[in-house]
Amino acid sequence: MDIKKIFGAILTLAGIGGLIYTAILYGNNSENTRAMIIYGVLGALFFFSGIGLIKNTSKKAS
């Protein structure tokens, strides 16, 4: 596997984790909206950058 795809997968998983944590905070009616915004934005940023990195990495011919 290419190192870019591995890093893309790590970023995607970190983004999913951030988005899930944001959903948990939202579900618990958390009073800390700043934390929800920060985790949500960072989760979305990591998720979409990881997906883009995986998608745009070209396959090498063996």
Rank of each mutant, 00 (worst) to 15 (best):
G40S: 08
I20F: 10
N32L: 08
F47W: 05
S62E: 14
A35I: 07
K60A: 13
Y39C: 10
T33V: 14
A9C: 04
L11D: 01
K59G: 08
I10Y: 05
I16E: 03
Y39G: 02
V41M: 12
T12F: 02
N32E: 15
G17Y: 06
I38C: 04
S30A: 15
L11P: 00
I20N: 11
G18E: 02
I38N: 11
N29E: 11
G40A: 08
G18K: 03
F46Y: 13
I3P: 07
L19E: 12
G8D: 00
A14V: 10
L19F: 07
K5P: 00
L13C: 06
K60F: 07
I3Q: 06
T57F: 03
N32Q: 10
G27E: 13
N32P: 09
S30D: 15
N56D: 09
R34Q: 11
G50E: 02
G18D: 02
G43L: 03
I24G: 08
I37K: 14
L11V: 01
N56L: 14
S30T: 14
Y26A: 15
L42H: 15
S62C: 03
G15S: 03
G15D: 01
G27N: 13
G52E: 04
G17P: 03
A44N: 03
K4N: 06
N56H: 13
